[in-house]
């Protein structure tokens, strides 16, 4: 019998102080990937894919990343990187949350939702639809599919936008620049649509 040589993809998940990442790890495991949760620069650089997840507060998260020089590590990654939620916001130039300078991978600023009517509640929490999809990240995802959001701050529609959603105003549901991909929504909490988006990322 010939020995089977199986390609094992390594997926690193950035370990930092932003919230509960248990569901990101779980969804990867369900998809047959054993993720490595790490803040080790060498492992992050060597991984095939890097996921930068999280929920939390921007200025505290940035302080944590800077203290451990993870800001430089993330900026210097060359493989496909997927930021999720606060991960996406931290990849921008500046965040209104805690008035903090962020990683600057995307040359755009993160703003706070300002309700125009009483019904417009902040945080934007729940399922909202995706439009203007343009990226291999959304292969086989249709316009109008719903994904799950929980956030009070947003990335405006800009040159990097690869998916839009609308709450109070149109905003970037996802952005991409070179090898850096990021979603404002939580694909790990977005049922089968979210799982497909994660699969698309792993297939890049």
């Amino acid at each position: 019998m010939c020995p089977k040589i199986k390609f094992e993809m390594t997926v690193a998940v950035v370990k930092y102080n932003a919230g509960n990442i248990y569901s990101v790890l779980s969804v990867l495991q369900r998809m047959g990937v054993e993720p490595i949760l790490t803040d080790d620069a060498k492992i992050l650089h060597q991984a095939d894919k890097v996921i930068f997840p999280g929920q939390g507060e921007a200025s505290n998260a940035m302080q944590y990343l800077r203290e451990r020089k993870l800001d430089e590590v993330i900026r210097s990654l060359t493989q496909p990187v997927l930021g999720i939620c606060i991960g996406q916001q931290l990849m921008c130039r500046h965040s209104a949350e805690g008035d903090v300078d962020c990683l600057g991978i995307f040359d755009t600023d993160v703003k706070r939702f300002v309700p125009q009517k009483h019904e417009e509640k902040v945080p934007h929490m729940g399922w909202n639809d995706l439009t203007n999809l343009k990226s291999p990240l959304f292969k086989d995802i249709h316009e109008g599919e719903f994904v799950y959001f929980v956030h009070s701050f947003y990335v405006p529609v800009c040159e990097w936008t690869i998916a839009q959603s609308d709450y109070i105003n149109p905003f970037s549901a996802a952005i991409q620049r070179d090898n850096f991909y990021a979603t404002q929504f939580h694909p790990e909490k977005s049922g089968s649509v979210g799982q497909r988006i994660i699969q698309n990322f792993l297939d890049l």
């Binding site: 779980s26 495991q29 369900r30 799950y148 929980v150 790990e188 909490k189 977005s190 049922g191 979210g194």
Partner: peptide
Amino acid sequence: VASELSIP
């Protein structure tokens, strides 16, 4: 539940 489901 968290391991097996992917909705909030």
